[in-house]
Design a protein around this nucleic acid. Structure first.
Lengths: 196, 196, 196, 196
DNA sequence: AATGAATGAGTCTTCATTCAT
DNA sequence: AATGAATGAAGACTCATTCAT
């Protein structure tokens, strides 16, 4: 039930925003009465913090698992696969993605903190794990350049991510292809620079 | 006063979301009583539709003016300048930018419609105006490729835009630099392909 | 304009009741702004007291004029004509009739007072004027009986009056006919008793 | 509590009209807070529709029971008793009677519909039940005449009913007596016509 | 003669929350 | 584990009224 409540909370949040996601709507969605929510969560804020926590954790776990499934591919394919993996994850659960996007403009301070930590966490993890792959393939790359490549990849990823709410169907598929091409170009440069 | 109300509405919206942007908060921000708002706008929805309309119009006008100020530069600089211009515009008015981002997850159907129209409008305009610059510089480019370049540029722009809320200070400046590099690469390819 | 306001007030009152007849609705109906009403009437209560006063005065004047036009007919025809006259007056201005009915349940004490005075006034007038006609035709009738006949006539009139809101078209016409028959019977009795 | 709310709603309605019968006044009358009303009724309109429904149902049941208690008396006494019964019912609960009268000028369309149905229902019922009594006593009466007698009786009843708000104490008692006399006359005619 | 701008009080209604059961 | 009943605070909005113009 706690999980059903979190799902409902995220869903309502994604549709109506924090103030519009009322306890009643959430309760109705899981088939209980508003008063019953308080048996599981102390109050609205607690529920939402748990919900957002889970959202971010899932998001992170998902990225880890995608990376894990591709760690034996060539670097450039890893970057590409990771992008596709994340995109697939988001597209497969648009409701949560909307929640995730809304998070960025969340009106609750505690949640913004969580989000910032999450972002730093992801960044560290990306730099560390992707960095090690890059260095393995291009041992001559400077730390600084490794950083740069990862950040550019993230920048492209952000662009695609933002497109999730802006483009639909074929238009969005095209976005992913365009991103792929740019990643490809990124690695062409590296290849040329470090492997001849 | 109608304009002051729109500003306040956007500000409150950017901070608290639609349901959290109460008439009282908006009224207080402009120094009148809640009841007085209804002298200027029929109701909350009307006020917000006017506000968002203006937000989108300003946004578009801003892009136009940036383009106008750079239309005599070389193409690659136009693309770069346009990106910087938009970023500057958004950074210079973070409150409105947050409102703009929140718009994407707005709970009011009428507003989503407006937003979609706005997006299509911008797209058309970009393809048309930037397209003509590209074709002038690289007459051999196919329409299809013109389209692709513009869309990649937009993708990078979206990445930067999304970063506005995620990065601060130097970190954000770095984002713009990274984007610039990628645009640069984009045009290097074109140069190589079409001008030798 | 003062008269237009009174008409509008009565109309709105008949539709929505006192609390539902807002200054705005009244102003809109006469094509001015609410604030302008206060140039003509001190406040809502004053306006309505004037309106009701006029309503009752008109009502009374109407009855007088009907009686005047028939004062040379035989008594029984006077009674019948008076009934028809009143009914015609009310049917011809249903809006005011509704207002008149609503008056009886008015929530404003001052108005109830007015109404009571009006009722007493009408009663006195009826007893006096109709009484004199009766006594002229049936000199042997006791004051007490004169009173009784008038009151029965009023009772029938009240029945018809109440029917204005309950019956429509032919159904209402039938009511008036039924009333006529009963008045006829009333005078048959008198005839039998006093003129043989 | 739902019933207490209905009583309070009718009482406030009878005093102040629909728009003047505020949720606050109703809540106060039953000793709860306005917000609590919404636990029992969806909104103001729902509450009032339930209230008026009950008012009309009670009214009808009352008439039925009066008729039932007198069905073995002679016809003319049935008519008289029914009148007295209805009058007693109304006089015994003036608050509800005022509500009933106000209903006729109610500003809510749904309620007017209910009222119309109620009136038709009562009419049918009167014609059917009183009609059968009349025919039993005067087998030679035509359906048409049966109809007429009933309608005249109703007309007198309406007159008395309307008098409830106009007359007080002895004056009202007199109204009932006058009505009684007229009913008496009505049956004298029938007696003379059909039983000699 | 009329109104634009403003407001305090009050309207219906919803919200998060509580607590006894 | 769940809810019926209740509520204080706040939500959007309306109302009668004022006053400078």
């Amino acid at each position: 039930m706690k999980n059903k409540l979190i799902d409902a909370a995220l869903n309502q949040y994604s549709i109506h925003g924090y103030h519009g996601a009322t306890m009643r709507k959430i309760a109705t969605e899981v088939g209980i009465k508003p008063a019953s929510i308080y048996f599981f969560y102390e109050n609205k804020e607690t529920l939402f913090i748990a919900a957002f926590q889970q959202l971010l954790d899932d998001h992170f776990r998902q990225m880890e698992s995608v990376l894990n499934n591709n760690k034996n591919s060539p670097v450039n394919q890893i970057f590409s696969a990771l992008l596709h993996g994340i995109v697939a994850h988001h597209k497969g659960d648009e409701q949560r993605t909307t929640a995730y996007i809304s998070l960025v403009t969340s009106p609750i301070p505690k949640i913004n903190e969580h989000l910032n930590n999450h972002m730093l966490h992801i960044n560290d993890w990306l730099v560390e794990s992707l960095g090690s792959f890059l260095k393995k393939s291009y041992p001559l790359m400077s730390s600084c350049e490794v950083d740069r490549v990862i950040k550019q990849w993230v920048l492209i990823g952000n662009g695609v991510f933002w497109g999730i709410k802006l483009y639909e169907g074929k238009d969005f598929t095209e976005q992913v292809e365009l991103a792929d091409q740019m990643i490809h170009t990124l690695f062409l440069e590296l290849e040329e620079k470090y492997t001849k």
